[in-house]
Amino acid sequence: MVVEEPQEPEIPVTILTGFLGAGKTTLLNRILKENHQFKIAIIENEFGTENIDNDLLVTEQKEQIVSMNNGCVCCTIRGDLSRVLTNLRLKRDRGEIDFDYVVLETSGVANPGPVAQTFFMDDAVAPFFRLDGIVTVVDAKYGAKTLDDEANARDQVGFADRILVSKCDLVTPAELEALESRLRSMNARAPIRRVDMGKCPVDVVLNISGFNMNDVLDVDPNFFVDDHHHHHHNDDIHTFVYDSEKPFDPMKLERYIMSLTSVYGPDMLRYKGILYFKDVDRRVVFQGVHMLAVSDVLGPWGDRKPFSKLVFIGRNLPEEAIRKGLDTCLA
């Protein structure tokens, strides 16, 4: 597996996605008004049905940037995301605006996958902007029905590094637990937090390090109890974990991951792992979005017994076939 030494881009970015009416705009307005240490540029997707409060952002046909009194700025997307980010960066370089963080709101019907890939694959974006994480907002009242009806809503859950559940007071404790159990079965990596959007702490959304290359694989402990690892409601998005104490053959695994992503890449939403390679005394981590996978080398195993652990979140992935394929890559 090819190991890259990534250079850390300067500007972190949070993708805020979620169900229509779940409270993303309430959360954005809180961020725009809150006294925090960041100077945030919020990019609002013009295709959403909700808008930032009119007194904060006036929606016009042309692109507009509005400065807030807490140091934040807000703009609407007109066209290509890469161009918008580049324009913001150039305005910052010229001293026309000042920001040190970007929050990108996608519309309630958007698939965040292509947006996430922009930060890895676009040469105009990747050197300057670092994807910090994807935060998905789920409406407790209508969440189950939305998951049943909307494929993109299921994708939004699958891509998430953190899931915020809103409007919890509108459902019974049993309904809320059933929804959270379903969300865990779809994405066991993402911590789930019940929130009031108008009072949500900013640090729940920002600087969550969802795309950091590290060896901490956060899989919800409840994933392994009460049969949470079985499908709920026949959801097409599902999590599974592969682990082994036997070392991988590096070349075999690289070829297999390449073939896996070439066939199933569009349905591989997020995958992340720590790898134990034969004759390598250091931990290797890798993660990917769709067809794009990157890897890095961490410190030595030390006193810890080496192991491999990979988490896959995807759409109708052939779990048993993938497990057998990974088995064939063991040394």
Rank of each mutant, 00 (worst) to 15 (best):
V157C: 13
R162S: 05
E10I: 01
V205Y: 13
D169R: 10
L90R: 14
V165P: 06
R194D: 02
V58M: 11
L330E: 12
C329M: 07
V84C: 15
E60H: 13
M68Y: 04
V280G: 00
D169I: 09
G158E: 06
I42H: 11
F19E: 08
D98C: 03
E34H: 13
S259T: 13
G21I: 09
F120E: 12
A110V: 02
D243N: 15
V297Q: 12
I163S: 04
D227I: 01
R78H: 14
I237R: 03
T136R: 03
V157I: 15
V165E: 07
P306T: 00
N29W: 14
V137A: 05
G21Q: 08
P112V: 13
P300K: 14
T25N: 03
G95H: 09
T172V: 06
I15N: 02
L310S: 03
E44S: 05
V285S: 09
K167D: 02
E245G: 12
P114T: 13
M186C: 06
I31W: 08
M291G: 05
F19R: 05
I15A: 03
D218M: 08
N45Q: 07
T25R: 05
D149Q: 14
T261K: 06
R78C: 08
N214Q: 09
R255G: 01
L28A: 07
G273D: 03
K272W: 09
M291T: 09
E319S: 04
R193Q: 04
L298H: 09
V311R: 06
S107K: 11
S82M: 05
E44Y: 06
K246V: 08
H232A: 04
P306Y: 03
C200K: 03
T14M: 01
D215M: 04
N207R: 13
V297Y: 02
A116S: 14
R189G: 02
C74V: 15
V103M: 06
E150H: 12
G108N: 09
T17M: 05
G21P: 07
G21H: 08
S82K: 10
D249V: 07
S308N: 06
R184C: 08
V109R: 12
F240S: 07
D303R: 15
G299D: 11
G18M: 12
M268P: 09
A22W: 11
V138Q: 04
F19K: 05
D155Y: 12
N69D: 09
V138F: 03
V284T: 11
Y264G: 02
K309S: 10
R270M: 12
D161V: 00
P114Q: 14
M268Y: 11
Y276K: 04
D249R: 08
F159K: 02
I77E: 12
Q61F: 08
E245M: 13
V171F: 02
K167P: 01
R304S: 14
Y276E: 02
G79Y: 10
G71E: 02
R323G: 10
P221N: 06
R193L: 08
T17H: 07
F99Y: 15
A190Y: 13
L310Y: 03
V219D: 06
S185P: 00
V66I: 13
N234F: 11
N152T: 14
D122P: 03
L57E: 02
M213L: 15
E5K: 11
H36F: 06
I11R: 06
C72K: 06
A293R: 10
V284M: 09
V135Y: 01
L292G: 00
A126P: 05
V135Q: 01
M197F: 04
E150A: 09
A153L: 05
S209G: 14
F159D: 02
K246H: 14
A116Q: 03
L298Q: 08
